[in-house]
Write a protein that binds this DNA or RNA. Structure first.
Length: 501
RNA sequence: GAGCCGUUAGCUCAGUCGGUAGAGCAAUUGCCUUUUAAGCAAUGGGCCGUGGGUUCGAGCCCCACACGGCUCACCA
């Protein structure tokens, strides 16, 4: 070996010691090793055989197995050694004796195999004195050498920075973290299953968009070199999904990453997973029923119950969920009747000041109403609630309420003080839609998050879009609720981090 | 963007009043043939986040910066 190991030796004493051991192996990273059983399979085999044997005779069953995994504990006791190896199905104990392996192999196991290494073992199953099913070793091979020592076996890995930056360590050593991500996968599967069973068509729409839209947020910008044009990473896929409704698909959905160039917090990651679905001939009321049924279904499927425990509070997801009119809710919690100052941000601001409400100034009446919602309504909500009927000016893509043109048929879904979804009866009138975009341009002077003009989308609406209900759900937040995690970083495998110092 | 807290051995953490750096696990060397946080004995291992400052002397006090966490702000 003439490799330059200087880089690796800088990692310290323990890495250097492992490098020395590594050089003793002809094949520290063999192309393959024999593996016939997982840890769980081996244990099951023995339990089944044992049950048969005790019925028929009293002899212990003889079962040869070949298992492989990462060495996670090792107890060397002179001429015999106990250890545990771990694979994707769990742990199994191995037992090695000098008598069985011979001096050379036994010493190799003792001296050259380290915690963290992957090994393959062959032997027969037996039960130890303390009753643990174990593999009595006949032979073993190194499957892959770990030249960096693993984290501590008892306390695991706690340092949040290392846990997020080196998630593989977090996963390998903290089983409860593995559980969260297994459940995440099941939640997304269950969501798909729910929609697939109802004939929603899963589609894929562009991540790179020339005009960003479908939400009020700031985008990430990128550049296409050959076309020499700026493009945006999608902040939403809404406008593309609705083009598909125009095209005649009556139920579509997409589960994808959206990207928003905004603050990072325990509830916000710059890229996050969104589920959006659109349903022709449905309205926002139908979307409420769809939402509560879907979330309840997902909870029941992955947790076996519609009751969740989040942050120490019990929350019942059983439908139907509470419906709360936005204006009524604000009146109830602040005493302010938003309609008394309709459309007049200064008048509403004055009313709020008169009641000494703590609010930040907002560029428009609708935004101030939204601020009231965020400050005085949202934090009070524990059990799932649909807050519905929003101001027009913060809802440029929603259809107006027929009985009150100042408001739109829209709801947001809240659970545990957290906004988890947004839905409306889709605006399908191209003339009003273009007018709404123009109004957004006017707000845009004071508001960086105003919706951009999108004439190509208006062109789509000119072909006619049936009455349609649409829904967007922040899946990461649903996963937080169903796995009882307080930070979105704990449900995203590789959350965004600054470059290391 | 603001405030608060944190950063010490591979990991989990102590570190008193400012006086030459500690434990457990992990590692190395012995002993140990049914252990399971194995046990016993010995040993090695430190850019105390980085850079300045105060001081005879700084892990500790002061300033700046970096990274992380929480809260707030921003934000569906």
């Amino acid at each position: 070996m003439t490799q330059d190991l200087t880089y690796f030796k800088n990692f310290g004493e323990q890495v250097e010691q492992r490098l020395n051991k590594l050089s003793q192996f002809e094949q520290p990273y063999p192309p393959r090793v024999k593996r016939q059983h997982t840890a769980a399979e081996a244990i099951k085999l023995f339990e089944v055989a044992e049950a048969k044997v005790t019925e028929e005779s009293s002899e212990s069953p003889v079962i040869e197995v070949e298992v492989a995994g990462r060495l996670v504990t090792m107890r060397v006791m002179g001429k015999s050694t106990f250890a545990h190896i771990e694979d994707g199905t769990g742990r199994i104990q191995i037992y090695a004796r000098k008598n069985d392996l011979g001096n050379e192999r036994y010493n190799e196991l003792k001296k050259s195999i380290d915690l963290g290494d992957f090994i393959a073992v062959q032997g027969h199953l037996f039960r130890t004195r303390t009753g643990e099913i174990s593999v009595h070793l006949v032979d073993f091979q190194l499957a892959s050498k770990a030249i960096h020592p693993p984290p501590e076996k008892w306390h695991g890995l706690k340092d949040t920075e290392i846990r997020y930056r080196q998630r593989y360590l977090d996963l390998s050593v903290n089983p409860e973290v593995r559980d969260v991500f297994v459940k995440r996968s099941k939640i997304i599967s269950a969501t798909r299953q729910y929609l697939d069973e109802r004939s929603f068509l899963e589609v894929e729409t562009p991540t790179l968009q020339a005009i960003y839209g479908g939400a009020l947020a700031r985008p990430f910008t990128t550049h296409h070199n050959t076309l020499d044009m700026d493009l945006f990473l999608r902040i939403s896929d809404e406008l593309y999904l609705k083009r598909l409704i125009v095209g005649g698909f009556e139920k579509v959905y997409e589960i994808c990453k959206d990207f928003r160039n905004e603050g990072i917090s325990t509830k916000h990651n710059p890229e996050f997973t969104m589920m959006e679905c659109y349903w022709a001939y449905a309205d926002y009321q139908d979307m409420m029923r769809l939402t509560e049924e879907m979330i309840a279904y997902v909870a029941q499927t992955v947790n076996g119950t519609m009751i969740i425990n989040y942050n120490g509070r019990e929350i019942d997801l059983t439908p139907p969920w509470r419906r709360l009119n936005l204006a009524e809710g604000i009146k109830e919690h602040t005493g302010i009747d938003i309609f008394e100052s309709y459309g007049d941000v200064d008048a509403l601001w004055a009313a709020c000041q008169a009641k000494s409400l703590k609010l930040s100034p907002q560029p428009s009446w609708g935004k101030l109403v939204d601020e009231l919602l965020g400050e005085y309504l949202e934090p009070t909500i524990v059990n799932p609630t649909f807050i519905h009927t929003f101001p027009v000016d913060v809802s440029p893509l929603s259809k107006q309420s027929p009985d009150d043109p100042r408001m739109v048929e829209r709801f947001e879904m809240f659970v545990a003080g957290m906004e988890c979804g947004n839905a409306y009866s889709e605006l399908n009138d191209p003339i009003i839609q273009r007018q709404r975009f123009l109004e957004q341009q006017a707000y845009g002077q004071a508001d960086k998050e105003a919706h951009a003009m999108d004439d190509d989308y208006v062109l789509a609406l000119m072909q006619g879009m049936p009455p349609t209900g649409g829904l967007g759900i922040g899946l990461d937040r649903i996963i937080m609720l169903l796995t009882d995690q307080k930070s979105i970083r704990d449900v995203i495998l590789f959350p965004h981090m600054r470059p290391q110092a």
